[in-house]
């Protein structure tokens, strides 16, 4: 009987450990993105370097999560909510790892820039980055609290990031046509914008997993995208008297 209790305790501990690893990974990627944003906003080369260095730790954590999840699946035969949670951790860790990659790719690009990013673009990138970081933070909170409603809200809110990305891309293209000597700069900016947008996309991937983990049902495969809804921004028209 004590043996059985012991096994239950071990299982609970391992599940706790898995959650702890996921949180740790989320915290690390959040920190990485924060550093990238500081590097953009303040032209802080040191922060960019630090952000790029975090990549290894993120990769190591992903490996740990995967190993532990597989171990739990193989040895403990988890069921229902536990099973969903453990299974969901694997792709969620994958998504976080990709986000980390994008963040360090931005960091590397920043440190290779030949000229500093002009001020208007810096302000715009910070703004978009803040939006992405906020979504990442909210999704990590939703994962911690197993809050499907919050996850669903973030899943839908990513279209703001898409819209931002489109607006900035359009702006960069316009600048390039007008001032051809800035093409090099704007290509770098376009990559950064794109990477931020991809980080946002992975946030929605995590959101889908959180909803699945909590409710057991999947979100529809297609998500509202920025360009579909530019003219229907208000979700509901105000009632006119």
């Amino acid at each position: 009987m004590h043996q059985k209790q012991h096994i239950v305790q071990r299982y609970e501990d391992e599940l706790l450990h898995l959650r702890s690893l996921m949180e740790q990974m989320g915290g690390l990627v959040e920190h990485q993105l924060s550093l990238v944003l500081a590097a953009i906003a303040e032209n802080d080369g040191q922060a960019a370097l630090q952000a790029a260095q975090q990549d290894r730790n993120v990769d190591a954590l992903e490996h740990k999560v995967e190993t532990l999840a597989i171990r739990l699946l193989a040895l403990r035969g988890p069921m229902a909510a536990d099973l969903r949670e453990i299974v969901a951790c694997i792709p969620m860790a994958g998504a976080l790892e990709r986000m980390g990659d994008y963040a360090s790719s931005i960091a590397r690009r920043l440190s290779q820039m030949e000229q500093p990013i002009p001020r208007p673009a810096r302000l715009a990138l910070s703004e978009m980055g803040r939006l992405v970081l906020e979504h990442l933070r909210r999704i990590m909170d939703a994962l911690e609290h197993k809050d499907a409603d919050a996850a669903h809200a973030i899943w839908a809110a990513d279209q703001l990031v898409d819209q931002y990305c489109e607006a900035m891309t359009a702006d960069s293209l316009e600048q390039m046509t007008r001032h051809p000597h800035t093409i090099r700069l704007h290509i770098a900016l376009l990559f950064i914008i794109r990477n931020l947008e991809r980080i946002g996309d992975h946030t929605t991937n995590i959101a889908e997993r959180v909803v699945f983990m909590v409710t057991g049902s999947m979100l529809p495969p297609s998500r509202p995208h920025g360009h579909d809804s530019q003219h229907s921004l208000p979700r509901q028209e105000p009632s006119n008297p």
Binding site: L123, E127, E166
Partner: peptide
């Protein structure tokens, strides 16, 4: 929900996401 509505010339769609950005 408070709304402020005008019948001015409007704003092109690509500006909308960035309106609240500083110095935009």
């Amino acid at each position: 929900l408070i709304t402020v509505e005008d019948n001015g010339p409007g704003i092109a769609a690509h500006h909308i996401p960035r309106l609240t950005e500083r110095f935009y």
